Simulated assay, not measured.
Amino acid sequence: MNETSRPPFSLVGLDHVVLLVTDMEIAMRFYQEVLGCQPGFSYPQFGMEQVWCGNALIVLQDYTKPEGKWARPPVEGGRNLDHVCIALSPFDHDAMRAHLKAHDVEIVEEALHGGARGMGNSFYVLDPFGNKLELKGPPVY
Score class of each variant (00 low, 15 high):
residue 34 V to M: 08
residue 41 F to M: 13
residue 48 M to N: 02
residue 113 H to S: 13
residue 98 A to Y: 04
residue 27 A to Q: 05
residue 95 A to W: 01
residue 4 T to H: 11
residue 32 Q to I: 12
residue 96 M to T: 10
residue 22 T to H: 13
residue 87 A to Y: 00
residue 19 L to Q: 11
residue 107 I to D: 06
residue 1 M to P: 02
residue 17 V to G: 10
residue 4 T to Q: 14
residue 26 I to L: 15
residue 31 Y to L: 02
residue 17 V to W: 00
residue 12 V to Y: 04
residue 4 T to V: 12
residue 2 N to G: 08
residue 33 E to P: 01
residue 82 D to Q: 09
residue 119 M to A: 07
residue 25 E to N: 09
residue 106 E to P: 03
residue 123 F to P: 08
residue 10 S to G: 07
residue 107 I to Y: 08
residue 19 L to N: 07
residue 64 T to Y: 12
residue 56 A to G: 12
residue 136 K to C: 00
residue 69 K to F: 03
residue 37 C to Q: 04
residue 101 K to G: 13
residue 106 E to W: 04
residue 64 T to N: 12
residue 121 N to T: 04
residue 131 N to K: 01
residue 12 V to T: 14
residue 101 K to P: 00
residue 56 A to Y: 06
residue 24 M to I: 02
residue 41 F to P: 01
residue 49 E to R: 14
residue 138 P to H: 08
residue 98 A to E: 14
residue 16 H to D: 11
residue 42 S to T: 11
residue 96 M to F: 07
residue 133 L to P: 09
residue 69 K to L: 04
residue 110 E to F: 09
residue 127 D to N: 10
residue 50 Q to H: 04
residue 129 F to T: 05
residue 48 M to L: 15
residue 37 C to F: 15
residue 73 P to Q: 11
residue 50 Q to Y: 00
residue 28 M to Q: 11
residue 57 L to W: 01
